[in-house]
């Protein structure tokens, strides 16, 4: 059989080179990298909820969700918590340094589907990062959606991300932004408690609501329970899953969650499609 010869491997496993355009300090342990392709071709289009594999030279590669920019931007923003070897190396990058990038990969938040609905966004910790592009997309066409709510919780007040944007979301777009933290000192005048307690504090029509949730599994479990309790149908609730990931293209097998490959079938899933496996220990 005649086989077309290719001198090098054009593989989905080979990163493209991106330049760090800006490093943004978000919190004490979290930062954002805004990157553009080194060949100035403009970042590849992504959909809210998708992720990239970021490579730090000589250290390794990690999946990081895309946290921005606003729809007209040329770059891609990744908000990263400095918790492991690779993320620590990425934290060490400075403006104009090079980072390897593969992506975007994965499924997206159901922005089109949400048209005509109220939208409840629930985020825990760094889970707000992949939801920010969804918010930007909703706000860009604000009149297409009903009530918008952002219910956001972190461990401590100093862990809250993107706080400088909350006023614009509230004031300009009428988003019901409610915050809560697990623990705080007397400086904090807001809510203390888990995110699902905020559901009762915002206005939405449960049967006409699309919910988008991202956070630790335990947080999502209780968030789903609360939303279902309010009457949001299971097929209108979307969650994101996270697992170990090596390839992001369905070859390595690491990210399997029941029948799903989180890299290519997820990370965003409609709840009723994964609920059979959601919450089973060590699945």
């Amino acid at each position: 059989m005649a086989v077309k010869m290719d001198p090098i491997i054009q593989s989905p496993m080979t990163p493209q080179l991106y330049r760090v355009e800006k490093v943004i300090r978000e919190t004490h342990d979290t930062f954002s990298l805004r990157v553009i392709p080194k060949d100035d071709s403009g970042a590849r289009a992504f959909q809210p909820g998708q992720f990239n594999m970021l490579y730090a030279f000589g250290v390794g590669e990690v999946p990081i969700s895309i946290s921005g920019p606003k729809p007209s931007g040329r770059s891609m923003i990744h908000t990263i918590r400095d918790v492991g070897t690779v993320t620590h190396a990425l934290h060490g990058l400075k403006k104009d340094q090079t980072v390897g990038l593969r992506g975007p990969f994965g499924s997206a938040w159901p922005i089109e589907l949400a048209k005509g609905y109220d939208v409840v966004i629930m985020a825990g910790g760094i889970g707000l990062a992949p939801l920010r592009p969804a918010l930007y997309a909703l706000l860009e066409q604000r009149d297409q959606f009903g009530e918008l709510s952002l219910l956001y919780g972190t461990r401590k007040p100093e862990d809250l991300l993107f706080t400088e944007e909350f006023e614009e979301w509230r004031g300009k777009y009428g988003v019901q932004v409610k915050l809560t933290v697990d623990t705080a000192d007397s400086e904090w005048h807001g809510n203390v408690g888990v995110v699902n307690t905020l559901v009762q504090r915002v206005t939405f029509d449960p049967v006409n609501t699309i919910a988008m949730i991202c956070g630790p599994e335990v947080m999502m479990r209780f968030a789903v329970l609360e939303l279902k309790h309010c009457g949001v149908p299971e097929d209108q609730i979307f969650i994101t899953m996270e697992r170990n990931m090596k390839c992001a293209v369905g070859f390595c097998g690491h990210c399997q969650f029941g029948p799903a490959f989180i890299c290519k079938d997820g990370p965003v899933f409609r709840y009723d499609q994964v609920k059979q496996f959601f919450g089973i220990r060590e699945i």
Binding site: V3, P7, I9, T14, F57, Q97, T98, G100
Partner: peptide, 21 residues
């Protein structure tokens, strides 16, 4: 080997593998 990379100062380049057949 999927690929190799060489650093040059703050920068690096990625060298894809030859596709053996």
């Amino acid at each position: 080997r999927l690929w190799s990379a060489d650093s040059e100062g703050n920068d690096f380049k990625i060298k894809p593998e030859k596709l053996e057949s």
